[in-house]
Design a protein around this nucleic acid. Structure first.
Lengths: 105, 105
DNA sequence: ACATCAATTCGATGTTTAGCTAAATGTCAA
DNA sequence: TTGACATTTAGCTAAACATCGAATTGATGT
């Protein structure tokens, strides 16, 4: 849980997760949204992987990253519950195809 | 927002917030719950103050700390909303007297 | 004034982090 | 096989962090 909050404590990483909300994206495409070097972005991806917030899959020359929505939800929920809150899904979009059951890693 | 997640990324600090959920507590009483030095605890308190997650008030020799529930809620909610979630209060306890309107910083 | 107690600040130390450039790895296409 | 491209690893610096013991501040009681 600490590791998730640590991952979330950087604005670049939070923004990466937001970008991944609308679907999987390659490391390069993600990096294009930010003004830091590719190696730096790669390090951010590693932190997100470590926190299990994203899944990665090599696809040809690229690496596709995918948000693991349920992990994010569980972490947030786990904390919120301790304070008498519950997480309620209000996304009218009904998409959230980021991570289905049976994901590797 | 980063500063809040950073504050939450330490288990000691999260536990402090949980302890404060049931009411204000002095720095000393809080410290007694942990196995680290007083200066270290004082540093943790400073981080929580910096994130505006607690209010502090000198009371005689002691310093009382109080959870600023609404700040925590707003930070969490602000993030959750970006992912299509909402925070719902399910605390049957109806207490939450941690921070009333008009608190001095 | 003085001693005492609670809490913080100071100064030191070791660890982690974000960022960079340069180099290595892996994949595809010619 | 060579070259181009995408990503990660290696190696570094500077800044931030966690932790401690010692010293300091500030309030209370004698």
């Amino acid at each position: 849980m600490s590791i998730v909050f640590k991952a979330l404590s950087d604005p670049t990483r939070r923004r990466v997760l937001e970008l991944l909300k609308s679907g999987a994206m390659s490391a390069g495409d993600l990096s294009a949204h930010f003004d830091v070097s590719k190696p730096t972005m790669s390090a951010h991806f590693a932190v997100l992987r470590e926190a299990d917030l994203v899944a990665s899959e090599k696809l040809g020359k690229s690496v596709m990253y995918q948000l693991k929505m349920s992990v994010l939800e569980d972490a947030l929920l786990g904390f919120a519950k301790a304070f008498g809150w519950q997480l309620q899904d209000i996304s009218g979009d009904a998409s959230t195809p980021q991570t289905r059951e049976g994901d590797t890693q």
